[in-house]
Design a protein around this nucleic acid. Sequence first.
DNA 1: CGTGACAGTGCACACATGTGCACTCACGTA
DNA 2: TACGTGAGTGCACATGTGTGCACTGTCACG
Lengths: 207, 207
Amino acid sequence: MTESRVERKGRTRRAILDAALALSDDTTLVALSLRQVAKEVGIVPTAFYRHFPSIEDLGLALVEESLDTLRALLRELRRAAGEDAGTIIDGSVAVLVEQVRGHHAHFGFLARERFAGPAGVRAAIARGIELAERELATDLAHLPGTDVWSERDLQILSALIVGAMVTTAERLVTAEPGSPEEHRIAEAARTQLRMLLIGAQSWKSRD
Amino acid sequence: MTESRVERKGRTRRAILDAALALSDDTTLVALSLRQVAKEVGIVPTAFYRHFPSIEDLGLALVEESLDTLRALLRELRRAAGEDAGTIIDGSVAVLVEQVRGHHAHFGFLARERFAGPAGVRAAIARGIELAERELATDLAHLPGTDVWSERDLQILSALIVGAMVTTAERLVTAEPGSPEEHRIAEAARTQLRMLLIGAQSWKSRD
DNA sequence: CGTGACAGTGCACACATGTGCACTCACGTA
DNA sequence: TACGTGAGTGCACATGTGTGCACTGTCACG
């Protein structure tokens, strides 16, 4: 029951990604040395190059992964919202809490590298978040009552919601799962979403 | 016209702070070496210790400074809002843009270190931002129409506004002063504030 | 079966880093 | 004017860093 060659390579690659995620958990990519990662994985430093040309490329791979789980979050949100419009808010926040819990490392990574990471990494994250905002905007456009909104306003509302979500996620990352702290953050997020959506409903009357 | 002793010491200290601010501008504190800072300032590495026991302590001093300019921003906002309630929004955003322009380095520093900095630095920033939220909450309580709000709701609305402000600031930091990009960000911020305040006005009817 | 691709090793090198220690020399005070 | 304080120096050391190069052994394919 031995391992195939490409399987083994894949496993080491995964191990490197996980080690980098774990090691950068209380610092940043830029403060991460190739040798630390290699030691953590249990390979010799130069073997690192068999998988990534540099730490920054490793970072880009991690961004890709993390953005994948961000997109998965959006998909889940869409699904939850579709089920019952009445519980959009509670459902969305529940999904958010659950996803952040389950993919703690990825959301933490995004929060940290968004502004502090290497330039390429920062750019990739910014692109990903902007894309998420646009995606959410088209979702919102399908909701009833938003037909009188301009496209630009929809985008701005999306940015507001995504911003609140990101901030909430960043806070959730630092909270213990199931802690009262986590509940307080979730409760605040529910109220915030409610405030935003109420504002949105009155918006059309203004312009 | 020679310099006094304490003046000279103060000047070097300032130079160290400025150098650290400049050098960490496209990375993080944690990726900053004592030797780099010393070289930038033009002193020998060990002379650094005459001013700070470690890079992290340097960081804490920078946090203090940056939070000072954040508080100054709040003060300016309060002043602008007091002048004419009708132009609260436009005035506030104008103040925000102006302050971020003028203290680019400090706001960038806060954005970067908020999640990626050393633990002590992160904690200090979190405390500062929470304080700012509370301060804003008591300001909001003095506005007409908010008397039916619970204290908790006021705090949550503050968090929403401060969050949007911080996000806006973070975006402004990466934009050229006077660029169309900057105008777009400011315009979006105005719309966001409008949406938030409209939501706030309808809020009391709900609970 | 033989052989080449290739993940991982081991060693080497030239730097960069934090920090200890003894020093100089200008300033401010007694 | 004599002297102590303290900012800045110069040198040293151990340790961590990225990366080049020749290597080994094993899996997969001709």
